[in-house]
Design a protein around this nucleic acid. Structure first.
Length: 100
DNA sequence: TCAATGACGTATC
DNA sequence: CGATACGCCATTG
């Protein structure tokens, strides 16, 4: 997921699928909270509704908002415009995931 | 061990 | 839209 492009967003499930782990979105979320931000574009990750899945009380919530706005992502409150910013994995990416 | 718990997703109602 | 229900499974206590 370190390959989610600038100004794009992907959902937890989408990432899980790409990693070859269907229906395992929760694992991705765990990976994000535990695997502390090691130069990972965690802020480009939202749920399938395009909504930010962090508690608004959490400091990171604000951070994610600003980071996204900074990248020019359209936000309606805490919701991103998926139709416009959803990441579409390139063929190269897919092949890469399939070990080709 | 076992039950509860998630930065989740899809399907219904 | 909001509320519920159920699937998934590593981590926690």
């Amino acid at each position: 997921m370190s390959l989610i492009p600038y100004s794009n967003v992907a959902s937890y499930g989408q990432i899980a699928d790409l990693a070859g782990l269907p229906n395992r979105a929760r694992m991705v979320s765990k990976a994000l909270k535990s695997s502390n931000i090691e130069a990972l574009p965690w802020h480009r990750v939202v749920n399938s509704q395009g909504k930010i899945s962090i508690a608004p009380s959490d400091p990171n919530f604000r951070l994610q908002l600003s980071l996204l706005r900074e990248e020019g992502v359209e936000l309606k409150g805490s919701r991103v415009n998926l139709t416009k910013h959803r990441w579409q994995p390139s063929l190269d990416t897919l092949l890469f995931e399939l070990n080709f």
